[in-house]
Amino acid sequence: MSERITVDARGMACPGPITKLVRAYRKASPGALIEVLATDPGFKPDVEAWAKRTGNEIVELAEENGVIRAVIRVTGKK
């Protein structure tokens, strides 16, 4: 079972959610899963751009009742 970190960034405006993700990423070990919950609509393109640039994998990205849920697997860390 890999480590799983949940980050609640609901109600935060841009760039709050990405800031929280970066901080969780700092603490995460390779292979860990980071789940981010956000309500800022800008978070969706931002998290995609972030994952692409940093070489991490988006396992899940869905929006339900205005809440964006992103699950990222830490693959960009050695």
Binding site: C14, P15, I18, V22, G42, D46, A49, W50, R53
Partner: peptide, 10 residues
């Protein structure tokens, strides 16, 4: 910079 763009706000 630790942001996606040249400033936190695009």
């Amino acid at each position: 910079l630790p942001f996606l763009h040249e400033y936190p706000s695009e």
